[in-house]
Design a protein around this nucleic acid. Structure first.
Length: 775
DNA sequence: GAGTTTGAAACT
DNA sequence: CAGTTTCAAACTC
């Protein structure tokens, strides 16, 4: 699909070299040397951190952390080994290798330049939030350029433009960015980790810019056809040092197209966990070659769909965790499934989904985004429940996995020895391992779920090796909320762990040793069976695997809800039906999920301490000054949010799903936001999910107005000001929703705008270089 | 650890 | 949609 583009790209590249851009690069090179050592690191970190943040702007923190983790690992291993020098050697840029960065420029000069320029501009102009916006926009353009074959040339033009503009700016700025981008692209995330940690945390705004840059750099890396060769070499060099060795090694070894390799690398670096998992899962069945092919396919997919790429990145940030979890199940199921109609949602979101799914799966193969998308949709987030809150953890885990599976692996037994299937499991493992290694970061709470789920996914073998099991168990115990569900272990005796009775199955995770189930079929070995069963269940109830509890933040943070707000704002998807427990015991799913009962509940004698069905707030938890807010919530929330939820859950259960990984991924756009800022996150997620699901579920429900509205807004959403929130507003709660998001502050509004932009991404294609050229 | 209670999931 | 059965978690002892 995309291959032709690459060829085109190559030409453009050559042109670029000749073009002013090239000159510009040459100019940059001198600058870099000055900053090279010290600056590069910082910038790199910034750049690295920023890219994710950009997409996830709202989530910035989380994403940053995740990347940070990832990169951090990478840094340790990769950086030292793969120095800029190596890169230079590999790339042997046409121009003087004054700095490592330069080489990169040569390979991907135009792109990088553009990125830096843009990023720098934006960064200088606008703080973090703005950076995010900028980053979003730019990245898209870059992505498109990269992704779309035709675009590349255009990109070059754009780049040239940007370069031209840049010149005016101080070389220092440019130099910074380029370096970071280069390193990102070349060394990949290696450098980021270390640098990012400090800088990211310290400098929020910069991060945004950096993110943009990094993304752009990534794109650039992909795009440059010439680079691929050098890249291969680089990969080889890096392999030893980098944790990504598996993928990288595969890439270099494989004769795959350069462009593809680049993508694969980027994906890896960026944390295309899906790919890994998918590969692992697939690899289990197929040989190494098969894996390679898969990788290629994935890459091809990415390349083919520029939009997707963008989505992917976004998705990565936000959804990584989810994807991974879902990987096994979803991957297979999704691919097999064909829920086209569902995907009608924004192309961007679809793309992202596709990317996630597609990458992971060979099934989807390069073919198209369309298919892959479809595939994605079908899969309902297995771990959605946990995911909503776990997003952060996910990110972290994912990043970790991506960045340093192997590095982390040490704790786990030799991963290299493991079979393909095992490898994919291992991929999962790292996350868990990481936790062990870095408990502080992940923290038991949300992250645990992810890890556990991941562990489950990883499979029995893995768990056995890791001591995590015990830990997981403990963690599960610790986790009171439904979020911990994914981590739970089952004790099924008759259901074979293939029914929702099984917590593991319901959570979308494989049973693991800790489970005391009998005749368990919920294991990697029985993937087919599991997938089929899942499909059946989903066919009956699309929301079956969706999170049961919708967190307030998820559902309707808008109101002013503080993130701290008690669960009252959250609601159970379908509501409970308790009769004897008075909703005061874990028998009650609402109570278990730490949320108050809602209108949708049919419970009797409800005494839910988190919030009663009638809206009254029990003394305990929620009774606070905020209670009013809650009361309001209950009053209003119930009316509005609950209605929304109810609609989502009941009418459009899918909407309720927001947390579901797939959905999220689908909604891609929102994810970024959702990732970190809780309020935005939940909000976003809900929206996105709703939108996504709406498409899925359209057939079923009367499709409440809200849903369609959401979708439309998302898709059509213009841009800046019409933030996602606005979209959401369409929902019954609309006002609140809109206001909160918008109100959230400049950042939120911007975010919303950004989000919208992202969502609107589909339009980006138009933005592609061509447009620029025309200009 | 065994038994009971409970309510969701599954079935009709 | 409602009623019943099945199931496994939550709970109690």
């Amino acid at each position: 699909m995309d291959t032709p583009d690459r060829s085109k790209i190559n030409n453009p590249l050559s042109q670029f070299e000749d073009s002013p851009v090239f000159n510009y690069i040459s100019n940059l090179s001198p600058i870099e040397p000055v900053k090279s050592v010290h600056i590069t690191q910082t910038f790199n970190s910034l750049s690295f951190s920023s890219p994710p943040s950009v997409f996830t702007s709202p989530h910035v923190n989380c994403h940053r952390e995740s990347r940070f983790l990832r990169r951090h690992n990478l840094l340790d291993a990769s950086k030292p080994k793969v120095s800029s020098e190596d890169i230079n050697n590999v790339y042997s840029c046409e121009k003087t290798p004054a700095d490592s960065t330069q080489p990169c420029h040569e390979s991907s000069e135009p792109q990088e330049n553009t990125n830096p320029n843009i990023s720098t501009r934006d960064a200088s102009i606008e703080p973090c939030n703005e950076n995010l916006n900028i980053s979003i926009e730019l990245p898209q353009g870059l992505k498109y350029n990269l992704a779309s074959p035709g675009y590349d040339p255009v990109l070059s033009a754009d780049e040239a433009d940007s370069l031209l503009e840049l010149p005016g700016k101080p070389g220092s700025d440019v130099a910074y960015i380029p370096e970071g981008s280069e390193k990102d692209s070349i060394e990949g995330e290696m450098h980021r980790p270390g640098l990012c940690h400090n800088e990211e945390k310290i400098e929020g705004p910069d991060c945004g810019v950096d993110d943009l840059i990094t993304e752009a750099s990534e794109l650039l890396m992909f795009s440059p056809p010439n680079v691929t060769d050098s890249f291969k070499d680089i990969n080889k060099q890096l392999n030893p040092s980098t944790q990504l060795t598996n993928y990288r090694t595969l890439l270099p070894q494989s004769d795959i197209n350069d462009g593809q390799q680049m993508h694969s690398v980027n994906a890896i670096a960026s944390g295309s966990e899906h790919e890994i998992e998918n590969h692992s899962s697939e690899s289990a069945a197929a040989t190494d070659t098969g894996q390679r092919q898969d990788n290629h396919d994935n890459v091809a997919l990415v390349a083919s769909n520029p939009n997707e790429k963008m989505d992917d990145k976004l998705v990565y940030v936000t959804h990584r965790g989810i994807r991974r979890r879902c990987l096994d199940f979803e991957m297979a199921s999704v691919q097999r499934k064909s829920i086209d109609g569902k995907l009608n949602t924004n192309s961007s979101t679809k793309k992202s989904d596709e990317m996630n799914v597609g990458k992971g799966k060979q099934l989807l193969p390069t073919k198209h985004s369309g298919d892959s998308r479809k595939c994605v949709l079908p899969g309902i987030g297995l771990h959605l429940n946990a995911l909503a809150t776990l997003n952060d953890c996910k990110n972290i885990k994912i990043e970790k996995l991506l960045s340093g599976r192997q590095p982390n692996m040490p704790s786990s037994s030799s991963s290299s020895q493991l079979s393909a299937s095992q490898e994919h499991q291992l991929s999962l493992l790292p996350a868990s391992v990481e936790k062990d290694l870095e408990p502080s970061e992940n923290e038991v709470q949300p992250g645990e779920d992810c890890t556990e789920s991941l562990v489950h996914m990883a499979g029995e073998d893995f768990q056995q090796n890791s001591p995590k099991k015990k830990r997981q168990v403990q963690l599960r115990k610790l986790e009171p909320d439904g979020e911990g569900e994914s981590c739970k272990r089952c004790n099924c005796k008759k259901s074979k762990c293939l029914k929702l009775y099984c917590e593991c199955f319901a959570a979308g995770v494989y049973c693991i040793e800790p489970c005391s189930c009998r005749d368990c079929f919920n294991k990697p070995i029985h993937v087919d069976t599991v997938l089929q069963t899942r499909q059946q269940i989903e066919s009956r109830n699309p929301l079956a695997f969706a999170p049961k509890v919708i967190r307030s933040s998820d559902s309707v943070p808008e109101i002013g809800d503080d993130p701290n707000k008690t669960p009252a704002s959250a609601r159970h998807k379908r509501g409970c039906n308790c009769k004897k427990s008075s909703c005061l015991k874990k028998y009650c799913e609402c109570y278990q999920g730490g949320v108050g009962c809602s209108i949708s509940c049919r419970c009797e004698g409800c005494k839910n301490t988190y919030g009663r069905k009638d809206g009254s707030v029990p003394s305990g938890i929620e009774a606070k000054p905020e209670e009013e807010t809650e009361v309001c919530e209950k009053g209003v929330m119930e009316n509005a949010s609950q209605k929304i939820e109810a609609h989502n859950t009941e009418d459009h259960p899918e909407h309720a799903l927001p947390t579901t990984p797939l959905r999220i991924s689908r909604s891609l756009l929102p994810l970024p936001f959702s990732s970190k800022g809780k309020p935005p996150r939940s909000f976003v997620t809900t929206i996105s999910s709703s939108g996504l699901f709406v498409s899925q579920k359209l057939g079923k429900s009367s499709a409440p107005r809200s849903q369609p509205k959401f979708e439309k807004p998302l898709q059509t959403v213009p841009d800046d000001d019409s933030p996602v929130t606005c979209i959401k507003t369409s929902s019954p709660n609309g006002k609140r929703i809109s206001s909160p998001n918008c109100d959230v502050g400049s950042s939120p509004t911007r975010r919303g705008g950004r989000k919208l932009i992202l969502q609107s991404i589909p339009s980006f294609p138009s933005l592609t270089p061509h447009n620029l050229r025309s200009d």
